[in-house]
Nucleic acid binder design. Structure first.
Lengths: 193, 193
DNA sequence: CCCCCCATGTAACATGTTACATGATTGA
DNA sequence: TCAATCATGTAACATGTTACATGGGGGG
């Protein structure tokens, strides 16, 4: 049942699509709209990216497309996540956070968080946030050390750019601390389940 | 003198390389080290990306490579920015900031700022920062409106992810205000020139 | 003697970008 | 009726990723 064609994994865009489809079955066009009009529109989305990506996800067995309006030339396809798709998604969002995630895949990290809501339960979210905070706590001082060590002569652009980065990380740090509280095992947050 | 092969423009990575080379002539290997070891290492850098990119820049006439150690099999090449390279770089960093830059090319925006130091004078930097602040001032409230309008039911991950984004933009806003002061035409900053 | 760092490069591959194409439906 | 929006897709192309290859020199 689970021996399959070439263990290829989805790309970032693929996971984004998978996550959105899992939240609610949708067509390619619906998904494009989301990328175009909401703040999720980071994963910018020409048809030339979306449709092939959906095809791949279907080939991997993570989603299935069902045709509505079968009589027209280009029938509308509504995709639904399969059980296997849900599994893959769950695994992906639940991965441990590495230093590399923070340095090179920051967007993906936040995408994982955003999509976690409908696939894992609170303890997993809690762990995710703690790991993220931990990574930040260790990385920020390093950046600050680099900043301090930078030569004071010449144009300040380099230093300023670095401190902009540091401030961004610090903002995320503060955010993570607050979010952690919301997911703390002791917390009395009123959400059901 | 300036009719040339196909007006192709460098990619982000290309501009990063060009900027670094302009600051100081370097070899491909040197540049890779920078991406690997400094906080600039966002533009991650396998040889398979760097060397072809350098070749392209040279074809476009933006840099020239001079061979040191000509006798070995793989001679070391040190690249220097040409006058035309400097021009292209200057033009790129000086572009007006669009809303799209903020939404989809945030990294590139900060790269432009970081590289500005050695190619334009303070008024241009000042204009850049003011435009950036202006874009932020108009975009942040929009995001906040979206956040407020979000349904309060269900898992809070989506809302939290959005507010993380908002906080990041706000941090940049604060940063921009401070940076602007440093470049204000009235400012008495002690840097020469 | 062996391994790591210097230093350059190539080849296969998957992905994304840009631009185009098709045609139905809806509102002005 | 004309334009915009719905809705899907393909083709050419450039770029980047991954993995490999080559070889000299220095340190343990």
């Amino acid at each position: 049942m689970n021996r399959m064609t070439a263990e290829r994994r989805p790309t970032s865009l693929g996971y984004a699509l998978l996550g959105l489809i899992h939240m609610q079955p949708q067509s390619g066009y619906d998904l494009r709209k989301i990328f175009e009009t909401t703040p999720m529109g980071h994963y910018s989305s020409s048809p030339g990216a979306i449709y092939p990506a959906l095809k791949r996800l279907e080939e991997m067995g993570l989603i299935v497309g069902e045709v509505a309006d079968g009589d027209t030339l280009r029938p509308k396809r509504v995709y639904t996540a399969t059980r296997s798709g849900l599994e893959v998604l769950r695994e992906w969002v639940s991965q441990s956070i590495t230093r590399d995630d923070l340095l090179h895949k920051d967007d993906e990290l936040m995408l994982r968080f955003a999509l976690m809501g409908s696939v894992v339960d609170d303890p997993v979210t809690y762990r995710f946030l703690r790991q993220m905070l931990h990574a930040l706590d260790s990385y920020i001082p390093e950046l600050e050390a680099v900043l301090t060590a930078m030569p004071q002569a010449g144009p300040p652009h380099g230093r300023l750019a670095l401190s902009s980065g540091i401030e961004a990380y610090k903002a995320r740090q503060t955010w993570a601390r607050q979010a952690i509280e919301e997911f703390s095992p002791n917390a009395e947050h009123g959400r059901e389940k």
